[in-house]
Structure formats: structure tokens, C-alpha cells
Design a protein around this nucleic acid. Structure first.
Lengths: 227, 227
DNA sequence: ATACCGTATATGGTATACCATATACGGTAT
DNA sequence: ATACCGTATATGGTATACCATATACGGTAT
């Protein structure tokens, strides 16, 4: 399906951009669409088409595409740019790297625990519980991402944060493009609760164990998708 | 010192670019100069100045600078782009992340050992020994980098490789900009030999231990620089 | 002498036109 | 019918002009 069709069908109102930093706005808009699966893997992304669609010139559109390319969500082929298609090996490799980075992140977060941070983690858990009660998938995914984001922030290592951001994009895109395979929400909630409690207790070892379980779970899910 | 002065003094011949892919050539040229310290931390990098210097238009120059910005070697401030200045905290944070990635890399490399790969590692060690005998600093640094590159490649995880590439840039830049603090070459060689032997034996645990020592050494060196 | 204000200047951002190259596609010779 | 060749077309790459904004700097009022 063409890019234009996808946009005009799904999001008639989402195409307005402020007149400041068209490049960054385009990047964020495209990233959201790609990671959420609304622009599916394999979609062709041509500079001119994108520029026309957003009502801007080729330059900011081009810049946005190059950003996403470096971010790993877009690949260049000799005849144009495309949304990445994540293979089985890709998911395994991505999760393998992510695991090590997340282990470091939870370890550092557990060392930097503070009352305010504890409260933020608790508030996030509450959001997740509410989302589950209401059966609100979007709210659930959002709170899930925010939980990790909180931990990454609290590690106080900007390089680690940057790497986690960049590796998580393709993983979430992959999961989003296979919504038919649902995660068990209650199970995930329990794992989040265990992780939060370990971090709040300053127990790095338990936190590492918890994140290992959580990502092993993701790995199993992705294996089922390819099976 | 201005960018133009730095270039014209040091490298009268290095400013020729082919007419294909000016952007990538500019990126590589600049990266080499920054990582080696020939363009020192804090240098201002203006699009127009760079374009004039290379005899190209602003667009490929701009693209190159944006590449390096995402790579972490350049930062944007409200009044222009600058070569990063690595603080004490930066080095610690960078090495902390690098350690986890390198541990994963040597573990995977040890699992993928093959005769051809063994030979490549041995050849690299020989290069390093020759460089030390000849007291050739450039050849030494080159063989050092190549040793790591070999291991990263052999891990067979493209995402890990990409991350290691991007994190090592600022670290090498930092070390290069403090050449007055020399590493002990023979000590480094011994550590490389130990690491190589562990990987060739397929002994992941020993390889991890070896890379830990090596990076702890780098950390101590950088601490001395700031002391 | 000092504080302020306004203009000059430098910067990155954006739009547009043109170029090089690779692909797609249709016509033509056999 | 098939293989080939050449042109049309789409793509990203590059050059250039203009714009918006932030800073620097000099003049002027007090």
C-alpha cells in the first residue's frame, strides 16, 4: 500500500506541522508512525512524496529520513529508502544487546534510588494497572514504555540512555506490527512490580534477575511470531 | 585556533575529495581529524566555512556535520556546532557502557572461533609487536583499533557492532587529545595477548576477565588525566 | 562613565532548480 | 515469441538563494 494512502486513510488531522524545526517535527511524526506500525515494514519512503505529503520542501523531509536511517528504522537501497523489516535474527540480536544495556541500567538505577524516584515508579505502576482495568491497549503500551524510560533516566548515564532509545525502536516496531500476538498483560504487570520493588529496595542483583526474565519473555514471544 | 588555520597548516594534501558522495567523504575526513585530535575539542565547525574549505556546497558539509552530531563527536549550540569536549564524567559513563558491550562482544567472539579468525587475530598481534619494535605510534594505535574491530566483527551481531563503533569515537578522541599521557605499550600488548589466547581457546569467562582488566586500565589512565 | 538600544553580522533552516544514476518499460529486430 | 536496446522516469545528490533568529558590537542618551 502506498504511503499517501496510509496517511490519508488513518490520520487526516495528524499532518499539520508548526513552522519551527520542520525537520524535527517530521522526524518525530514519522518515528511515531513507524514504531506504532501505522507505516508498516517495507513501506517505501521517497523524499519528494513525503515532502508533498507534509507540505514542506525536500530538505527537511530528507533530513528526517536520514535521522531515521541512523536511528535504524529506515534503510537505504539503491532505488530508495524503506521502513526496515525485522528478521528473526534481527530480533534476537537486538534483544541480546538490549539485555546487557538494561542490566546496566537497572543496576545503576538501584544505586540512585530516591524518595521522588520511588514515587514516580509507583505512579507509573498505578497507570499500568488502570490501563489494564480499562482494557486500554494504547495506555498500556505507553505506561510500559514510560516504566523503562524512568529506569533509563535514573541510571544517570546519557550514553546508556541514548543507546537504549535507539535499540528499542526496531523492537517495538516489530512487536507493534504483530499485534495478533498479544502479551499477557497481567504477567507483564507482575514482572514490572517485581522489578520496581527490587529497584526501590536498592537490590541490584534482584533487579537484574527481574529484567532478565522480562526480556526472556519478549524473546519467547518473538520466537512464537516467527514459528 | 580557527578551523582554516588548523587544516592549512597540517594537511595541505588531504583536502581533495572525489566527486562521488561528497557527504560521506566529508564525514570520514572530519571523523578522522576529530578522533585523532588534529581538530581539537571545542573547535567551532560552521557549515559555510567547512564547505569553502573542501570546495563543496553547504549541503554535503551540513549532512556530514549532522552525521557526526548523531555519532556524538559534534554538539549543536544555539550559535553553531562544535567538536565535543569530553569531561571526566563523560569518560566514566562512556567506559561504563563500553565495558558491558565489549564483554558481550568477546563472549560471542569466543563462541564463533574459527581457524581463519584465529589466524587474523594472530596476524594482528604480530602487527602490534612490529609497531612497538619500530616505536611507530600511528601503527600501534591502528593495530590496537583493528584488534577490537576484529573481535566486534566476529561477534556476528550488527547492532552490537554499530554501538561499539559509536561509543568508541569519543573515547579515542579523548585519549588522542592527551598524548602527553602515554599508555604502557608492552602492558597493553600483554593484555591483548591474554585476550586473544582466551578467545582462541573459546574461553569466554577468561576473555571477559581480560577485557575488564583492559578497560579498567583505560579508566585509570583517564582518571590520571583529570587528576 | 554607563546603561541601553538598535543595527550589522553570523548562524543554521528551508525552498527550489538542476544533475547523475539506476531502474522500468516499451518498442523493435530477429 | 523473444531477446535486446534505448529512452523515459524516478530516485537521491548537490548547488544556490533566501529566510529567521540569535548574537555581537557600536553608537547614543543620560
Amino acid at each position: 500500500m502506498s504511503l499517501i494512502t496510509l496517511f490519508s486513510q488513518a490520520a487526516p488531522g495528524a499532518l499539520k506541522l508548526d513552522r519551527s524545526s520542520l525537520k524535527n517535527q517530521s522526524t518525530e511524526l514519522l518515528r511515531t508512525y513507524i514504531v506504532s506500525g501505522r507505516i508498516p515494514p517495507g513501506t517505501k519512503l521517497a523524499e519528494r512524496e513525503l515532502a508533498d505529503l507534509l507540505g514542506i520542501s525536500r530538505m527537511p523531509a530528507r533530513d528526517a529520513l536520514m535521522d531515521l536511517e541512523r536511528e535504524g528504522l529506515v534503510v537505504s537501497k539503491p532505488n530508495g529508502r524503506y521502513v526496515i523489516e525485522v528478521s528473526k535474527a534481527d530480533v534476537q540480536n537486538l534483544l541480546q544487546v538490549r539485555l546487557e544495556l538494561e542490566k546496566l541500567a537497572v543496576t545503576l538505577a538501584a544505586q540512585h534510588i530516591s524518595p521522588a524516584y520511588r514515587a514516580a515508579l509507583e505512579a507509573n505502576l498505578q497507570q499500568m494497572r488502570t490501563a489494564i482495568q480499562r482494557n486500554d491497549r494504547n495506555a498500556y503500551v505507553k505506561s510500559d514504555l514510560e516504566a523503562h524510560e524512568l529506569i533509563w533516566q535514573q541510571a544517570h548515564n546519557p550514553y546508556l540512555l541514548k543507546m537504549l532509545h535507539s535499540i528499542v525502536g526496531p523492537i517495538f516496531m516489530f512487536i507493534a506490527s504483530h499485534t495478533e500476538f498479544q502479551t499477557n498483560w497481567h504477567e507483564t504487570l507482575q514482572m514490572h512490580e517485581a522489578l520496581t520493588s527490587a529497584i526501590c529496595a536498592g537490590d541490584a542483583a534482584r533487579a537484574v534477575k527481574s529484567i532478565e526474565e522480562q526480556l526472556e519473555n519478549s524473546r519467547q514471544l518473538s520466537l512464537r511470531i516467527f514459528a
